[in-house]
Nucleic acid binder design. Structure first.
Lengths: 125, 125
DNA sequence: CCAATAGTTCAATAAGCATTGAACATAGAT
DNA sequence: ATCTATGTTCAATGCTTATTGAACTATTGG
C-alpha cells in the first residue's frame, strides 16, 4: 500500500477525464456529498460513503476521482480523508464544478443523492 | 431509414448521459464546432464534421448526442442539419453547457479543436 | 432510368469499464 | 502478540463502448 496515492498537478487535469468521472452516478454522488460536507468539515472518510456501494468498488471509484484530479486523499492512520480539489478545478476550468453540482442538485431525487441534512449528519455516527 | 430520428423531451434529458456524451473527445469537438457555428448559421451538416472521423463513426456519435438531448437533427433531402439544443439544455441545467464550452475553449489546442476561424469558414466549401 | 451524393445501419472486433469477493496491508486497541 | 477496523489490491466476470468497412436507403441531378 503506497503511503501517498498519486495526484495529478493542476496542469495535468484533463477535461474529458473530469467529465467522464462525473458521468458515473456513484462518482457524481461522491463528489456531491463531498461538496455538501465542505460547509462543515471539508473532509470525509471512505466509510462515510458506504451507502453508495461496497468497499472495494468505492476504492475503485476513489482512485478514478483522484486520477482525474477531482479529489485529494490524505492518509491518517488507518483512515483516508477525502476532499474536493475545488481551487485547482476552479483555476483550471472556471465555473465547471459549480455548474455540475448545481445541475446535480436540481436532479437530486432522480440521481438518488442524499439530502443535505443527512449528508451533514453523516460526518459522525 | 426513419424519417425523423428520436429526440428526448427536455424533461428526459439526464445529467449523467450529458456528461458522458461530452466526455468523448470526438463528441466534445462536435458540440464545440456546433457552438462556434451558432454565431453564423446555427446549423451544420454531417459532412461538415468529416475532419473528426469517418462517416459511420460520426453517425454513431451523432446518435449518442441526439439520444442524450445535446443536439437536434433536421432532415432535409439527403442532408441532415444539426444544431445544439441550447435553450433546452439551459432550461434543464443552467450554465452547464457554457461552462463546458468555455473549459473546452481553454484547452482548444490540447483537445485538438478547430480554431474559430476555420470552423466558421467551413460552413461552405 | 442511371449515376452520384449524403448518411444510416449492420456485423465484427478490440478495448475499456463497473462490479464482486477474496486476499492483503496497516494502524489502533486489548 | 493478537484481534479488530479501515481501506486497498488482485483476479474474474459480464457489460458497454468506440471503431471499421461493407451493405443499404433515400434524394438529387443528368
Amino acid at each position: 500500500m503506497s503511503r501517498t496515492p498519486h495526484h495529478p498537478t493542476p496542469e495535468q487535469i484533463e477535461l474529458p477525464m473530469v467529465l467522464d468521472c462525473l458521468s458515473d452516478p456513484i462518482r457524481l454522488a461522491i463528489v456531491y456529498q463531498l461538496a455538501q460536507q465542505e460547509r462543515v468539515s471539508s473532509e470525509l472518510r471512505c466509510g462515510d460513503f458506504s451507502a453508495l456501494s461496497g468497499k472495494s468498488n468505492l476504492a475503485y471509484h476513489f482512485a478514478k476521482l483522484r486520477d482525474c484530479g477531482l479529489m485529494r486523499t490524505r492518509v491518517a492512520g488507518t483512515n483516508r480523508f477525502m476532499r474536493l480539489r475545488r481551487e485547482d478545478l476552479e483555476a483550471r476550468f472556471p465555473g465547471l464544478l459549480d455548474a455540475v453540482l448545481s445541475s446535480a442538485a436540481r436532479d437530486a431525487d432522480r440521481l438518488q443523492l442524499l439530502p443535505e441534512c443527512e449528508v451533514i449528519s453523516a460526518g459522525r455516527s
